[in-house]
Design a protein around this nucleic acid. Structure first.
Lengths: 203, 203
DNA sequence: TGTATTCAATACAGAACTGTATCCTACTCC
DNA sequence: GGAGTAGGATACAGTTCTGTATTGAATACA
């Protein structure tokens, strides 16, 4: 029952992992199929035996990456919802722990966002994923706020959108100024302000 | 004293304008030198007579674009500082009016941000520009808050960073969901919340 | 053990892109 | 109006990339 040395799924996985690296470093358009194969330790023969084009790879990579992210989020949710701590802790926990390498994730997701802004199909896929992400986060927020008797001055969905906007905006600034701004510090400065603004004890 | 039909500066300008269009549509890496020349109505001969490479063009375009933006901001500042209205109005005014085509600007500036995340020279240039932009916005905020007797619970620089984060995060979400979210609506929903949170009357 | 099959490597053709060297044309200035 | 020059077009060589067709090796299976 040993996994064969040469299996379709294994090489697909290695190609996807290689693509993640290469795309982060050079962008979707800047990376050639051969770059990806080099990174994965294959030649183009392997690539075209597993994918029909770079575009298909990009889509597969997006699906694989976001599937994995959503899984991890689902796994974290119950833990975060029941842990002692504030809503802020839970949100930061989710945002921080679900993502491994912040820089790589930011590069890839920004790259895919740009791709989506120019490609309706990608836009649909991305919006779907983002809607699910918002739904998870909204669920977390609602559970914690109920447990800690908080209420919001705006709808939860809107609140979550604001949190995401701040998160992404802060991450972008942090990564651009590595020396000046320590990683995560902006986010840790901004989110409490936003939370204070929108929530208050309900009794 | 007629400007000659064929002048260095004019063709440079047309090439830069063409590059803006093409880069917005295909990205820096996805656009070929020939694409840019086609858009501008030249051949590659004109290009290489005016720029040494696409990279140099990207840098020139960035400089030209941001110079223009900062000029417009400086022109808007006195007007906005003295107009009747709230701090929110002034900030939104600056953010909205200084930028022409929101979508194009977002594409280009995101593209350049990605470029900067991979290229230290570009990062320096971008951070310099962003620092100047923050300085302008900070000046506006301080003038208006002084005039309207507001004080902030965080340093002005930090407040401006938060505003920018929200602005960019909201714009990204808006552009991704054109049907679902009307342009600017998220920003108009978020900024008042943030302003409320950080400022209060000082007497 | 021998055969069939699967999967990646290799070889190849064609397209796209870059950069340069040269040519041509329209102004400039005498 | 004729020589000189500036600026862009054209032609070309070299490189890189893509995609396919074929080959070769490893695995499964009988």
């Amino acid at each position: 029952m040993e996994p064969p040395k040469r299996s379709r799924t294994a090489t697909r996985a290695r190609l996807l992992a290689g693509a993640l690296e290469v795309f982060a470093e050079r962008g979707f358009a800047g990376a050639s199929v051969e770059d990806i194969c080099d990174q994965a330790g294959f030649t183009r023969g392997a690539f075209y035996s597993n994918f029909t084009s770079k575009d298909e790879l990009v889509l597969s990579l997006f699906q694989a990456t976001t599937d994995r992210l959503l899984e991890q989020i689902e796994a974290l949710l119950p833990e975060l919802a029941n842990q002692p701590g504030t809503l802020l802790d839970a949100i930061l926990g989710l945002l921080d722990e679900a993502i491994g390498d912040q820089r790589q994730w930011h590069l890839i997701s920004t790259e895919f966002t740009l791709h989506a802004l120019r490609n309706p199909d990608a836009a649909r896929a991305l919006n779907e994923q983002r809607a699910m992400f918002r739904a998870s986060l909204t669920r977390l927020v609602e559970e914690i706020s109920a447990a800690s008797h908080l209420q919001f001055s705006v709808p939860a969905e809107q609140f979550v959108r604001l949190v995401i906007a701040v998160h992404e905006g802060a991450r972008s600034q942090s990564l651009l100024e590595p020396g000046k701004v320590s990683p995560g510090s902006l986010e840790h400065a901004f989110l409490p302000i936003v939370l204070d603004a929108v929530s208050r004890p309900s009794h």
